[in-house]
């Protein structure tokens, strides 16, 4: 799958972003033209020795200083405004709807399925290609701004208000999303990944996300060494589950299908299948997860999650196995 190597509004993969990039190219082209003409006239004025008619120079000043900028601005404004109705129009009835809430400094995501049921996830958004998607955006604390540069424009997320945004991905790939409104210490590390896939892959992913832990092959809590079928990794994961509860992780994080129902931090039900840790800060690898759990504030200064430096090495290892197994 194509993974965007850099985050750019000009690396377009959505209808909104394509129109915005188009506008940018027209503006950049127009600005370059105006700059060349202006600089050309300035150089001519400096180098020219011959006398010019006062009337002609006056019209040149009025034309170049007032009329041309007004006409150019009116043209650009009209061109940009004509784009607005389509960009602002909601996705058609029955389109996929995703609720996203900005929380310092991560993203709470809820997919609304056909029955109206909410399927929670966090810091990662899957989208089907060539389908319009309606986002409902809000904030739980301060003003954030939701922006996936490759897919479309940005929209502010305000506490107590729901703003909407339509995106329409046009090619598959993995893209970056960011908070585009300064929201505090870890603002620059409030990111997320966007995975655009074909419809079938998306449907399968959503069905998987809807599952609770008990519906899947859960890491067994049975640590009886006599059970010869249990692998070492599964044993570690089972110990990690115990650690998860005994160390109080469940007070902030939910794992559906278990007693863990915290809502302060991200839902971790399918944490192992995510691409990143800490809201797009690190790739989701066992080494990075170990680093995140043991030295959270060095990785993401300002993060609300406490530093669990009191965790023993074997506890961190077991948590890494447990969380990694939450596919």
């Amino acid at each position: 799958m194509h993974q965007s190597s850099f985050q750019s509004a000009l690396d377009t993969a959505g209808k909104g972003a394509e129109r915005i990039a188009e506008l940018f190219y027209w503006m950049a082209g127009g600005a370059t033209l105006i700059w060349i003409v202006t600089m050309g006239l300035a150089v001519y004025a400096i180098l020219s020795r011959r006398e010019h008619s006062v009337r002609m120079t006056r019209w040149l000043v009025i034309g170049g200083g007032a009329v041309v900028p007004t006409v150019v601005l009116a043209g650009l404004l009209s061109y940009a405004l004509v784009m607005l109705p389509e960009l602002q129009r909601p996705a058609p009835e029955g389109s996929l709807t995703i609720e996203v809430a900005g929380v310092r400094w991560w993203w709470r995501v809820n997919y609304i399925d056909n029955t109206g049921r909410r399927i929670p996830t966090a810091n990662e958004i899957y989208l089907p290609v060539d389908q319009p998607v309606e986002f409902k955006l809000t904030s739980e604390d301060v003003i954030h701004s939701f922006w996936i540069p490759s897919l479309g424009g940005k929209v502010d997320m305000m506490p107590g208000r729901t703003n909407r945004l339509k995106l329409h991905p046009t090619r598959t790939g993995v893209f970056s999303g960011v908070c585009a409104e300064f929201c505090g210490t870890a603002h620059a590390q409030m990111r997320f990944r966007v995975v655009v896939t074909d419809q079938q892959t998306f449907d399968d992913w959503l069905v998987g996300q809807a599952q609770e832990l008990a519906e899947r092959r859960e890491p067994s809590a049975n640590t009886d060494p006599a059970d010869v079928h249990q692998s070492a990794a599964e044993t570690q994961a089972a110990i990690g589950k115990t650690t998860f509860f005994s160390r109080g992780c469940s007070a902030c994080h939910a794992i559906r299908g278990t007693p863990a129902d915290g809502v302060v931090g991200p839902d971790l039900t399918h944490f192992g299948s995510r691409l990143s840790i800490g809201a797009g800060v690190l790739d989701n690898t066992p080494e990075n997860l170990r680093l995140w759990l043991s030295d959270t504030h060095r990785v993401k200064p300002g993060v609300q999650m406490p530093d669990f430096q009191t965790l023993r090495g074997d506890e961190v290892d077991s948590l890494v196995h447990f969380l990694g197994a939450l596919k």
Binding site: V82, L84, R164
Partner: peptide, 18 residues
């Protein structure tokens, strides 16, 4: 006058409260 026309231009294309 030009600025007022620019402001008004925004509302010419405004179809709904969206």
């Amino acid at each position: 006058g030009v600025a007022i026309l620019f402001t008004a231009l925004v509302f010419v294309i405004m179809e709904t409260c969206h």
